[in-house]
C-alpha cells in the first residue's frame, strides 16, 4: 500500500523541521475542520488539533509504514482527542450545544449563508457524538465507509447504521431548510 506521507513522517521523526512543516500544511486544514465540526468550538478544536500533532511528533520516529495509512491514523488520533474533550465537558454545555435555533420565524425567507451554516452546525452538534463523527467523516471529510469505520474503530455495518440514524436525525432537525 503506497502511503504518500511515509517519507515525510520518517524525516519528521528524525528531526527534519521542513518535513514537519510539510506534514502540517498537508493535514492541518482537514484536521481542524474535523475537530471544529466535532466540538463546535474553534478554540477547543485548535487545542485538540495541537494535541493530535504533539502525539504525531512524539510517535513519528517509531512510525512503521504498512500497518495503517498514516492519514487514517492521524484522523483517529484527532477524533480521540475530540472525544476526550467532549467527555470532559460539563453536561450543561452539551445541552447548550444541542440547542437548535427555532426554525419557525425563518421558514418564510431566504437564509443568509452564515446563518444557514450556523444552523447546520447546531443541528450537527445536537447529534450523539458517534453519529456526528460518522456524518462528519463521510459527508464532510469525504472518507470512504471502510476508512471511516477504521477511524472510528467500528465495523462497516455499524458505521452504516450510525450514518443512517445520523442522517435521518439531521434531516428532521433541519426540515425547514429542505427547500432552501
Amino acid at each position: 500500500m503506497f502511503d504518500p506521507d511515509t517519507d515525510l513522517v520518517k524525516r519528521a521523526g528524525a528531526g527534519d523541521r521542513a518535513a514537519a512543516q510539510a506534514l502540517m500544511a498537508r493535514h492541518l486544514p482537514k484536521m481542524l475542520s474535523l475537530a471544529r465540526r466535532m466540538l463546535g468550538s474553534q478554540s477547543e478544536a485548535e487545542d485538540a488539533v495541537q494535541d493530535a500533532f504533539l502525539k504525531l511528533w512524539t510517535h513519528a520516529a517509531r512510525w512503521t509504514p504498512g500497518k495503517a495509512k498514516f492519514e487514517t491514523w492521524l484522523y483517529r488520533v484527532t477524533m480521540n482527542k475530540c472525544y476526550d474533550r467532549l467527555r470532559k465537558r460539563p453536561a450543561a454545555n452539551l445541552e447548550e450545544a444541542a440547542d437548535v435555533p427555532d426554525p419557525a420565524p425563518r421558514a418564510d425567507r431566504a437564509l443568509e449563508t452564515a446563518d444557514m451554516s450556523a444552523e447546520i452546525e447546531a443541528a450537527l452538534a445536537a447529534l450523539p457524538e458517534r453519529q456526528r463523527a460518522a456524518i462528519v467523516l463521510c459527508h464532510h471529510q469525504e472518507r470512504g465507509n471502510v476508512e471511516a469505520a477504521e477511524i472510528l474503530g467500528v465495523s462497516v455495518e455499524a458505521l452504516e447504521s450510525l450514518l443512517a440514524r445520523g442522517r435521518r436525525a439531521l434531516r428532521s432537525r433541519l426540515a425547514h431548510l429542505r427547500d432552501g
Binding site: R17, L28, A45, Q50, W57, R171
Partner: peptide, 29 residues
C-alpha cells in the same frame, strides 16, 4: 437522506487555519 445531508454539510463555512496555531504546533515540534 445521504444526498441531502451531503448537500447540507457542503454549505458549512470553511474553517480558517490561524497562523498562531501553526506557530504553536511547530513550536511543539
Amino acid at each position: 437522506d445521504a444526498q441531502w445531508v451531503g448537500g447540507a454539510l457542503g454549505r458549512l463555512s470553511t474553517v480558517p487555519v490561524p497562523a498562531a496555531l501553526e506557530v504553536r504546533i511547530l513550536g511543539d515540534f
